[in-house]
Design a protein around this nucleic acid. Structure first.
Lengths: 160, 160
DNA sequence: CTAGACCCTCCCATCGTTGGAGGGTCAAGC
DNA sequence: GCTTGACCCTCCAACGATGGGAGGGTCTAG
């Protein structure tokens, strides 16, 4: 089947399939004489795997590791479980940080009259010396977003 | 004061200050004859405002709106409150989605022996037809990450 | 006068995804 | 045959926020 059909069958956009191939996440698909990529049912399975892992918030770099662990059955589940649990921890850290942000903002908003009075606690709060971001940050030294979990778009599932 | 000093005083990197100016988020700072940007205490206040709003997960595009509302006091708090509450809702949606991801993954991981047995429920789960992403997605049609809240890196506060 | 700290403007990378431009290929209908 | 429209191809650029670095100018203390 062609790339368009594979895309529909796997819920991965044609753009992304080509992108994954270019980045080595997928092996290069064989081509027809005219250059069209050709896919088999197994490839759709692989695409669906990528899509699901992506939906679970795994960064592509990690998605690339998973199947290799899969093939190398000797050290299969232990490694995968470790990776998955680390990922869960990262996701939960992030969720906690989000809750903290939401709480801070909601507090500010609650104090806001919401009318035309010129003083707005929200703006005043944000203007403060330090954002009252609670110590939700357990934190763990990683500088930015924590290596994993970076995309994790909101519940993308229903989008197709 | 120079950009470096302003950066330290506001906890905004020099790179970012220049970036914000280039993107119109900040008015162009006056320059010395030699081209150095010059800042006054008030500017540091503005920078700190941006930093705090950023830490609360506001995308820069929205941060740009806040001060303009601030200046236009006539319609101050009502607008700001609306914006803030919408933001809170978006953040919480995202947090919910993260929890759902974490739960799904944890379930898969829990079922995993974590030893050398060749079958790994995690990989099998991810390979399934559909990711068992719960109906956390109440969802709301927006296609990608939901407009606001996109950066929100994990508890960045302690990083400086 | 020189070293080192600071500043300047560019460009590039990250991460995942989308969009478009510009062009080739295929199948169906006439 | 030939046209049309759907499909495919490869590049190139953009988003959002940030960081890194090159290559160069400026300032200040010794």
């Amino acid at each position: 089947m062609n790339i368009g059909e594979a895309g529909k069958a796997s819920s991965v956009s044609v753009k992304m399939i080509r992108h994954y191939e270019a980045n080595g996440l997928l092996p290069a698909a064989p081509r027809t004489e005219s250059g069209y990529r050709v896919y088999r049912p197994d490839d759709v399975h692989a695409l669906r795997f990528i899509r699901n892992a992506r939906d679970l918030g795994f960064p592509l770099a990690e998605i690339e590791e998973l199947p290799s662990l899969w093939r190398d059955r000797a050290r299969a589940s232990a490694e995968v479980k470790r990776l998955a649990m680390a990922h869960v921890a990262a996701i939960e850290d992030k969720a906690k940080a989000l809750h903290a942000m939401a709480n801070t903002l909601r507090q500010l908003a609650t104090a806001c009259h919401g009318d035309h009075r010129p003083d707005c606690p929200i703006l005043e709060g944000i203007s403060g010396e330090e954002t009252p971001l609670p110590s939700t940050n357990g934190n763990s030294g990683h500088t930015r977003a924590g290596g994993m979990l970076r995309r994790a778009s909101i519940a993308r599932a229903p989008q197709e």
